[in-house]
């Protein structure tokens, strides 16, 4: 049963479980979709996470009293989401300067960098939530055999758009920032572009696969993106279609 947790007098967290798990997250997203349909007055926004959804509301709204119970009803009645979000095929330049930890990860796994890239481009990653910084996607789906702890000493500066892994999670840093995840590559796409009406590339529930590109193609796409000429829709995969291999 979903649990209702108070986050002060202006937010409720509806908790579905305590694990990082795709089935649990599908219930979170099903709840978020039901919440969208319910259009409850006084509700300002909601933030889906791995395992829960935080609903921010105006405590002075006439409907604030009893909102918690209403949220639990919606949570109990909402089916797990069938379609969670969009599907993306995102170009990534693996290894070298773009992915300084790829070789070490391969050595630790007793395999080659090429084999790691093959595993990375065959897996489907799920955006569980965005946080830490605008547009930062916490993604699941990293094959277990690639799971490694964080770096013992975090980097002072992770370059923007670095593809990074830790445990079985994967992420892309939208902006340069300190960070302790292992860097495997870099995408030319902006993860958070304030020039666009919807700045974040990903939304919670989206899925992504990586497509390996070379340095020339990466530089070309980076120049297009910097000039504001890149059409994000070109990297979408139709939701009904099977993943292109």
């Amino acid at each position: 049963m979903p649990k209702l947790l108070p986050l002060g007098d202006a937010a409720w967290t509806v908790e579905f479980g305590e694990a990082v798990d795709p089935a649990l997250h599908a219930r979170v997203m099903g709840f978020a979709q039901a919440l969208e349909r319910a259009a409850l007055p006084g509700v300002i926004e909601w933030v889906p996470t791995f395992r829960s959804c935080t609903v921010h509301f105006d405590p002075l709204s006439p409907l604030a009293d009893g909102l918690g119970e209403r949220l639990l009803e919606i949570a109990a009645g909402a089916p797990a989401a069938a379609v969670l979000g969009r599907r993306w095929r995102i170009p990534v330049l693996f290894g070298g300067e773009a992915g300084p930890d790829l070789a070490e990860l391969a050595a630790r796994c007793g395999t080659s960098a090429e084999a790691i890239v093959a595993r990375m481009t065959a897996a489907v990653f799920r955006v569980y939530m965005l946080g830490f910084m605008p547009g930062f996607p916490y993604m699941g789906g990293l094959p277990e055999e690639l799971a490694m702890p964080r770096l013992a000493t975090p980097r002072k500066q992770v370059p923007a758009r670095s593809l990074a892994v830790t445990g079985t999670l994967c992420a892309i840093y939208p902006f340069a920032s300190p960070g302790g995840w292992r860097l495997l590559g870099r995408t030319p796409l902006a993860l958070f572009d304030v020039r666009r009406p919807a700045p974040a590339l990903f939304a919670p529930g989206d899925e992504a696969m990586w497509q390996a590109i070379d340095a020339t193609e990466c530089a070309r796409l980076e120049a297009e993106e910097a000039a504001g000429r890149l059409d994000r829709a070109a990297f979408l995969v139709a939701p009904e279609a099977p993943w292109p291999r």
């Binding site: 986050l7 202006a10 967290t13 694990a19 990082v20 996470t49 791995f50 395992r51 959804c53 946080g131």
Partner: peptide, 9 residues
Amino acid sequence: VSDGVAPGA
């Protein structure tokens, strides 16, 4: 496992 936060928490 990370969940939502708010000012005041």
